[in-house]
């Protein structure tokens, strides 16, 4: 991907926060009046990546890894300490109107709709803010209402909506101006499985219809698996991995799972691997990746097994290992 065709270009981006620091107790409080101590916290530490037009990229990392700080720098809410970010050719920190009209930032835990009135009125306000032509506004609004199955809910005051309904309204409001770049910071946080799926389907459809570029953070791996071919893993402000989701599993997964059914479920399987699940006659074994073929052959030889399957470790496990082991690949 060449830099000129990338929608998002990030080079050695850094953000350091100065955090006040003092010991507990009255004496320390008095001392801090005279000498205020601060500590530099590197939230983002030399991050570089590019995102092509129409790409959906999952931005993964544990809490405090630097995901939201990066998204805020890319959307112009935070000024970088160093490095450079460009989005659609703009320097986000300048917050030019032409830039703001082409992007959106949805934060799953923040509300922007007017609380006391129906969402329809807030949508109308967004039309005026973004100067969306009337016909285009109505077309987009009705399209989103249908896609997100909002129906009559748009006529209810926002305060009377459930969390899931409210989130769907927030997303509708945030996309009415048809932004080319979407920064989605945990858009499905706190939602039930059905609602998460509905939002995922909508994001995928929006990306397909408008060729929008999406940078998504989520702690729900189902979101990432459903939407993102490519993932960027960030930890302690640095990128640990940038590539295909399948490549992440390949590189960081230390084990595979072997599932099978046994005629006699009481058999001791500890010699073959770690039993991660046992449900009646169905057993799931976790074995080191390099041992998979040998253990599979051994199981088939030694025991009467049926319906044997070999799979990669669940993505949640892989991510957990990546975070736990930092930069060291465990494969």
């Amino acid at each position: 991907m060449s830099a000129s065709t990338s929608v998002i270009q990030v080079a050695s981006l850094r953000k350091t926060y100065q955090v006040p620091e003092r010991e507990a107790g009255l004496a320390a409080a008095v001392r801090s009046l005279v000498r205020r101590k601060t500590k530099d916290v590197k939230a983002v530490d030399g991050v570089s990546f590019e995102v092509a037009p129409g790409e959906i990229v999952g931005f993964l990392g544990p809490n405090g890894a630097g995901k939201t700080t990066t998204l805020k720098m890319l959307s112009g809410l935070l000024y970088p300490t160093g490095g450079e970010a460009r989005v659609l050719g703009h320097l986000p920190s300048k917050r030019e109107k032409a830039f703001l009209r082409q992007i959106t930032l949805v934060m799953g835990n923040r509300n922007q709709l007017v609380w006391d009135i129906p969402a329809l009125d807030s949508f109308e306000l967004n039309r005026a803010i973004y100067q969306i032509p009337e016909a285009e506004f109505k077309r987009t609004r009705d399209e989103f209402i249908e896609l997100l199955e909002l129906g009559e809910l748009v006529k209810k005051p926002v305060r009377n909506l459930s969390l899931g309904e409210r989130m769907r309204m927030e997303i509708t409001g945030a996309l009415l101006h048809r932004p080319k770049v979407l920064f989605l910071d945990e858009p499905t946080i706190g939602l039930d499985v059905t609602m998460q799926k509905r939002i995922r389907v909508f994001i995928a459809e929006y990306n397909r219809r408008y060729a929008a570029t999406v940078l998504l953070t989520s702690h729900y791996m189902a979101d990432v698996e459903a939407l993102c071919k490519r993932v960027i893993v960030i930890h302690h402000g640095q990128i640990l991995f940038d590539g295909d989701l399948s490549g992440l599993v390949e590189r960081f997964s230390a084990s595979k799972t072997i599932g099978f059914s046994l005629e006699d479920p009481s058999v001791d399987l500890s010699a073959y691997g770690e039993v991660s699940e046992r449900d009646g006659s169905r057993v799931t074994l976790r074995v080191p990746k390099a041992e998979t073929s040998r253990v599979t052959a051994q199981l088939l030889t030694d025991l009467a097994v049926e319906d044997l399957t070999v799979e990669d470790a669940p993505i949640d496990d892989v991510i957990e290992r990546v975070f736990a082991h930092g930069k060291e690949p465990t494969a």
Binding site: G76, L100, R110, Q112, I129, Y130
Partner: peptide
């Protein structure tokens, strides 16, 4: 604190 300002800064107005 509530993030309202964040929303305001994201608008081209």
């Amino acid at each position: 604190r509530q993030g309202q300002l964040t929303g305001m800064l994201m608008r081209p107005l």
